[in-house]
Amino acid sequence: MTAGPLSGSGRLMGALYRGADSDLAYSFRRNPVVVTAAIVTLLYFFGAAFADWIAPHTPFDPSTLSLGDAEKPPAWIEGGDWSYLLGTDNQGRDIFSTILYGSRLSLIVGFSAVIFSVVLGVGLGVTSGYFGGWYESIVMRAADVQLTLPSILVALMVDGVARAIFAGTDIKTDATFAIYVLIFAIGISAWPQYARVVRSATLVEKSKDYVAAARVIGIPSWRIMLRHVLPNTMGPVLVIGTIDLALAIITEATLSFLGVGIPPTQPSLGTLIRVGQEFLFSGQWWITLFPALALVLLVLAVNLLGDWLRDALNPKLR
């Protein structure tokens, strides 16, 4: 990173131009499936970010609900109403609006959990690879122990213990609290992958001359790790992170579906599916199947992006 003669905006334009001209962008443009997946993902981000403006109804404001509109089927089925595109649930809430708000929660939890596990895993991975010794063995053995159990079980356990700790208090039923617990539980369940990958990449980088040179001229360890080693380990982290985002969204939905995630007062996609499941038997399939479809579409799109990124960043496949 040398400071060139260019001004700030000129550098930005240069970076954008190089970005649009790179191998990555080329392989992106060449692949229609990936472009579709990216558009779908962006639509979800957009819908989640601007749910307050896009959603045709305010499903969680009881004063706007009317039981007269309850259990309406999707608009194109007889008895449907075009102001409720995907139908309504038993309390007259618009399904399309609840899906928008639900996706927002799912994405917030998913993203935060991934960021949490990246920070934790990359931090532990870089430091353990760089310093080595007993610290490294403790971190890596901890990763081994955790990898013995599937991540969903770890997330469930952490979630359960957090619930047990706060069992007596009234914050347990609070939706915001549930969100923090979920982010923590899902984040904790995924750190070992990052730690392993980053540690082995750090071991490789550490033995190279530029790190030795940096050390010789007296740059402090934290700065070498942060500015020199870390940027060279980011490729695989980006790939794992994308695939992990899909997994985190699934895990959040699963925990909420199991009834130990986000409470129904402010439902995520998983909660919506859980709450709607009982109406499946009385014929109101849209209450649960549309949120399920929304979840599957989101996960599929993110998964496709992750797969493409893995192949595109893999030099062996170029």
């Binding site: 899909a246 699963t254 579906f257 199991l258 599916i273 649960t288 399920a292 599957v296 996960v299 599929l300």
Partner: peptide
């Protein structure tokens, strides 16, 4: 490929809807 993206509980709900309901 699509099956891998389906969470377990969604598969269950779909099967219930098709074969039970």
């Amino acid at each position: 490929l699509i099956g891998v993206s389906l969470p377990t509980f969604v598969i269950g709900i779909l099967l219930i809807y098709i074969f039970s309901v």
